[in-house]
Design a protein around this nucleic acid. Structure first.
Length: 440
RNA sequence: GCGUCGAUGGUAGAGUGGUCAAAUACGACACGCUGUAAACGUGUUGCCUUCGGGCUUCGGGGGUUCGAAUCCCUCUCGACGCA
């Protein structure tokens, strides 16, 4: 993986870049489509690509449980497995520490609405005996499978091993995404844990990369007779029949993987900065910024972190992706975003428009024969009306989620592309103001 | 014509003397969703309300009872059976 900054946004941390992976380039800032279980829900790869998506993200915990990382490895890695030829990423399972742990069975979001610490009455949030599927142990997390109840202990090493089997171009260190409702003391403990896990993730990654390189050298030596093909030497040898055979099991480890370390620290300035310093001191290829914010202090948290992270390495703001957040993140130096919002909201009947979100099942759209957005170039808007999509949702038809996801993904991916272009055109701030005035 | 069974909120369908403004499901309406336990979840769904409660409802009418969706009589409508 290689990252090159092409242009910087004046008087801010923002930048435009190009991230090169073994499976193609990513023009940053970019929005990463979330495909937790090696599929962008309700969409096929062509639809994902046509929406403008450059890169997709799978999930370690989910793919480890089903179908199993060895299966994905056997298919030739997550990209080949899901028929996505472009760049891929996998999340480490750190988010599931939160979603299946502190947030399990509750309506807690990682974006808290409670910003006044005095409202966080300890007794009210003491849920230590509440049932949860993720329990944090000494050197890893014990997950009780949401599928069959089986127990799986995921350590940083295990997460990295799984991610090497999944074979994405960019993988993440195993971290703990804390609940925003945890107090400072807990955030600090969790941060220390995440930092130790970052070191262990990195060590395991280096070890596995080393093994992979040794294997490659060995393979090259074994096939030295045909080695001219891979070395690119101009030898006019006819292709051997054996060289054309498709191997039954492809090596997922054809390409080296980049590892991103994750900065945590909740909403606390000192912890965020401490984490940014520590994580940047390690030899990661890039960085993730982990969630657990309140909406209004998200920008400051991102800024604290990105002012410290080394400029030349890419930064990924994990799990954030509402339009206003994209402007905020990009302005504050974020290169990559992923978020379930476009696909989940779409499937659940909420659609993005430049004038704000609409709930397509609402009465007013039942006889609205115009597209979701008149000037939208997405497949759904080019071919269908709101009345029809509303009808599909009311009738619980599968196509409803597909058309809605296509539009929402297109909307978000292209918003990021437009923001990127606005930086190149030196009118980021004008575009931001203009867009948000209409949208919010 | 006789007999039997049935008629419950937008729909289906519980309830068979008080705890019934009436289960449940669906529908309708509104809302929520930020590294996907999620094609999911929550709320409202007779009328009025100062949110304490008040008022009118279970095909129509009449009756029994302190009290009726629930028991009795009758009418209307429907299904089935016998003429």
């Amino acid at each position: 993986m290689n990252f090159k900054i092409e242009k910087k946004l004046k008087n801010s941390l923002g930048r435009v870049g190009v991230l090169t992976t073994s499976h193609g380039i990513i023009q940053t800032p970019a929005f990463v489509a979330v495909g937790t279980k090696a599929t962008i829900k309700s969409l096929n790869p062509e639809q994902v690509k046509d929406a403008g998506t450059q890169v997709v993200l799978g999930n370690t915990y989910h793919l480890y449980l089903q179908p199993g990382d060895e299966i994905v490895r056997g298919a030739g890695g997550i990209g080949k497995f899901m028929n996505w030829s472009g760049p891929t990423m996998t999340d480490s399972g750190g988010f599931q520490v939160f979603s299946l742990g502190a947030a399990y069975g509750k309506q807690i979001s990682k974006i808290t609405k409670i910003t006044d610490p005095s409202l966080l009455i300890p007794e009210r949030f003491d849920d230590s005996d509440a049932p949860r599927l993720a329990k944090i142990g000494q050197d890893g997390v014990s997950f009780k499978s949401h599928l069959d109840g089986s127990i799986h202990y995921i350590t940083p090493e295990k997460s990295i091993q799984i991610q090497h089997n999944l074979g994405a171009d960019i993988i993440f260190a195993f971290d703990e995404c804390t609940s925003p409702t945890e107090d400072l003391k807990y955030q600090e403990e969790a941060l220390e844990r995440t930092h130790r896990w970052a070191e262990r993730s990195l060590d395991e990654h280096k070890k596995l990369e080393e093994l992979k390189n040794m294997e490659e050298v060995k393979n090259k030596a074994d096939s030295s007779f045909f080695g001219s093909l891979s070395t690119g030497a101009p030898v006019a040898l006819p292709l051997s029949p054996s060289a054309c055979e498709t191997p039954k099991k492809e090596k997922s480890a054809d390409f080296s993987q980049a590892l991103f370390g994750i900065v945590q620290g909740g909403r606390d300035e000192a912890l965020r900065k401490k984490s940014a310093k520590f994580i940047s001191s390690l030899d990661f290829d890039g960085f993730g910024i982990g969630g657990s914010f309140a909406k209004e202090d998200m920008s400051t948290a991102v800024k604290w972190v990105n002012e410290i992270l080394p400029e030349e390495k890419p930064r990924h703001l994990l799990g954030i992706g509402e339009p206003e957040d994209l402007f905020m993140g990009i302005e504050n130096g974020v290169d990559l975003f992923d978020c379930v919002a476009p696909t989940r909201l779409g499937r659940n009947g909420t659609l993005y428009t430049k004038n704000g979100k609409i709930i397509i099942m609402n009465r007013q759209f039942r006889e609205d024969y115009s597209p979701i957005e008149r000037d939208c170039a997405c497949y759904s808007c080019q071919n269908y009306t709101k009345a029809y999509i509303a009808h599909l949702f009311h009738g619980k038809e599968m196509l409803a989620g597909t058309l809605a996801s296509i539009h929402n993904l297109y909307f978000i991916v292209n918003l990021v592309k437009k923001i990127r272009q606005s930086i190149l055109d030196d009118n980021f701030f004008e575009f931001k103001e203009e867009f948000l005035k209409e949208y919010l």
